[in-house]
Write a protein that binds this DNA or RNA. Structure first.
Length: 119
RNA sequence: UGAGUGGGAAAGGCGAUCGCGGCCGCACGCAUGAGGCGGUCGAGGAAAGUCCGGGCUCCAUAGGGCAGGGUGCUGGAUAACGUCCAGCGAGGGCGACCUUAGGGCCAGUGCCACAGAAAUGAAGACCGCCGGCCUUCGGGCCGGUAAGGAUGCAACGGUGCGGUAAGAGCGCACCAGCGGCCGGGUGACCGGCCGGCUAGGUAAACCCCACCCGGAGCAAGACCGAAUAGGGAAGGGAUGAAGCGGCCCGCUGAACCUUCCGGGUUGCGUCGCUAGAGCCGUCGGGCAACCGCCGGCCCAGAUAGAUGAUCGCCACCGCGCAAGCGGCACAGGACCCGGCUUAUUGAUCACUCACAGC
RNA sequence: UGGGGCGUCGCCAAGCGGUAAGGCUCUGGACUCUGACUCCAGCAUCGGUGGUUCGAAUCCAUCCGCCCCAG
């Protein structure tokens, strides 16, 4: 199994982020929000967001690192050919690792279901 | 033991598995992005706030004047500073020690509300005090007086003695202030003597004086690639466009510039980008800040932005008989340095005061 | 990251060294049979903390919060 997460799979342009937020669909729970939109090239790109509401740079970077780790460990379960954005919500700052991972997998499952039912 | 003052450091450690960024090497591959293996390096004392000062880049090689802004006891340190060091003066504390934008209101101007007789001019008499005159015995008028009362943040030196009708630097002693001389110190200033006999406060009010400051900022600036068509109208231009962001001068100096209408593109691009007022150590100079010689070291360069997750052991703190459980601050480079300020953890050293014991 | 601006009552705001205007809202009262209108009254640690001054919303320093501009 491949646990790597390379730069070319990142979603990086501000315009792309906006496109996913405005045109894509999303699911949420208490810790996270998961936005997604079909990629025209059929590739998968992932972005992570942690707004200023969460706190200073240390906290925001830490949230993004933990989200990247979540994605790294279960990237094969995500729907293929989608641009995805994982947004950290305020409750995530105090969340432990196991509940965070569970919340992440929960969102993926629900997102997948939405994608498959719409096909 | 308790309370307190000041200083210099540190910022948990080791290991395992998966994973991330830069650089170097190797082999593979080459249509292109990339990928594989090994090595090595990989956030802070404040990286923060952006409050100052520089370097660097472009505009003149950064020039002159005005305007504007900053600093403000003295001497030194420094690339420079509003920083630092050593002092002076003035406040505060029993003390260790702390605080201090601290030049000039006899260059000029302004302000000092209310209260008060009067708020700066050698002006001014509300109550009182003293003298004279008058008196209807209640007091009235004239003059002297800033010692007392009253007002105020502040009232024309303060305290004491003498003096006087009552008083007053009117006289004397000490103190404060002013001026002069002498001595010490590089200087701020300190000490002593003499003199006249007294001149409000406010410059973080305008201002004056001394010194300093050209403007922008790495989204500076340079280059490559992709895209398209560089189109139309008006105005200005060697009688000087533009650089130049407040004005004038000066300099450079060209065929462009400004406004409106219409059209079009923008990359996992490259350089700047990290070897520096650099770090560590010995010695020397200096009270110190700091400087110098020699030797050694290379210590982040990302670009949605690299350090995480899980686990084990040992530190430290709290709870508990114990097994164990919980905790372990503030906080993340973005061109780089020197400061300041703010946030914050647990220790440590020196010193001071109080109480008790020897 | 760099540059610039603003904080005065619940809301909009004036004041820029000497007692914090005004409007809307709210509360109480008057008028009315009851409401509305009208009239009267009430409602402020001037973002926080220090400093300068006799005296600070105002001047100075520092911190906090919010907004705007440049990819």
């Amino acid at each position: 199994m491949n646990f790597r997460f390379q730069r070319r799979h990142h979603l990086r342009k501000r315009a792309l982020f906006r496109k996913v937020y405005e045109e894509g669909r999303f699911v949420t729970n208490r810790l996270l929000a998961f936005h997604f939109l079909a990629n025209p090239e059929g590739r998968r790109r992932v972005g992570f967001a942690a707004g200023k509401k969460l706190g200073g740079a240390v906290l925001r970077n830490r949230c993004k690192r933990r989200l990247r780790e979540c994605y790294r460990l279960c990237q094969d379960r995500l729907p293929e050919g989608m641009d995805c954005i994982i947004v950290a919500r305020k409750a995530m700052i105090d969340a432990d690792w196991q509940p965070l991972l569970a919340a992440f997998q929960d969102l993926i499952r629900r997102g997948r279901a939405m994608v498959e039912s719409s096909r």
